[in-house]
Write a protein that binds this DNA or RNA. Sequence first.
DNA 1: GTCTATACCTTGATAGAC
DNA 2: GTCTATCAAGGTATAGAC
Lengths: 213, 213
Amino acid sequence: MPRPQTVSDDELFDRLAHVFRVAGFEGASLGALAEGAGLQRASLYHRFPGGKVQMAEAVMGRVKGLFLRALEPMGSDADVAAGVAESARRISEIYADGELPCVLDTLTLSGAPESIRARAAEITTAWIDAMAGAAERGGADADAARLAAEDAFVRIEGGLVLARLHGDPSAFRRAIAGLPRMLLTGQPPPGVDPGSASGSRKPQASARSAASR
Amino acid sequence: MPRPQTVSDDELFDRLAHVFRVAGFEGASLGALAEGAGLQRASLYHRFPGGKVQMAEAVMGRVKGLFLRALEPMGSDADVAAGVAESARRISEIYADGELPCVLDTLTLSGAPESIRARAAEITTAWIDAMAGAAERGGADADAARLAAEDAFVRIEGGLVLARLHGDPSAFRRAIAGLPRMLLTGQPPPGVDPGSASGSRKPQASARSAASR
DNA sequence: GTCTATACCTTGATAGAC
DNA sequence: GTCTATCAAGGTATAGAC
């Protein structure tokens, strides 16, 4: 073996994942991928003979592994709340505390090949299933558990979108901090401080009409 | 005037918006934009001498107009709940009932120029402000109103991401249907049917540990 | 395994006929 | 105002030296 690898597979996948997640599939040019990886374009083709599509597939495989590891505590029967809290911590780490976009969102736009979209859907399913499982072990019935899990997913993804738009990850962080409460009580976090009072409505201000129904 | 326009400005902007929203800024090639617009590339450059960036800016202007029109009922003092419900209907229409991605999400990836990101941030601010205003008129104090408004935004955007990933817009539709309740009571919709019972927990199943905190 | 060099195509953008 | 034709630049991908 003449020349050793200058960067491990996992490290390489992580670097490529960073480019893909911030730029999307079409936006991630080979030049940008090579620069992010610290390799020349031709070197990337040596490691990924299938080209850009194979790079993205490898990234999705790596991402799936990261998520399965993050979701693992949530699957334990021991202490559901503690498991959910630990998984929430790991999920937040994947997103750099809300600073980085979600590859499931950004890598599934129109230009992305079907194989990538399929893998993203798989990861999404595994993630929501894990949260629904935790909710069920927390006492919810199957339907309520799935709703709570989808709601949690939606809050996290939407929180990341808002973080990118306003440069403010606080909504994402609320979704992460409120994850145990959402899954295990079916209720969202009431406000900024998860331990605060039930809400801050002004009872004297009369809502002019009944809400929704 | 030798040749009349074959497509009106608004119609053209809408067609371009469709390409941009599903493909992102980098993913929307001039070829795709021209095809979507039903014009040749050179004709697009006649209408937009500033090129692709100007096209995207025009799209953002059009989108801002659509949103302001959608948010208008929510700003009325007459019947807050009815206004929110009507705005929710119009917002859902912008997203084709959850079938189309949000331009605020897809057009703000790494490749997008700063001018586009700034306009997207403006639209986001206007949208959240309008929802927070409605929540305040519904009786919430300023902080709670803003939290509810951000929460509503996050649910809608996250719902659209999930819709794209799983081909299932039900989470988006729940966010839309629950908008009056979220803004005017500070509580999320309890489940699939907004008028159903308070929740479907199994009281006999003991949650093994206190949630959160 | 990584590099330089290069082939080939698509892209964004322009010129000029009608 | 729209079109065909064209350009330079950047895109993906490959060949071959080390």
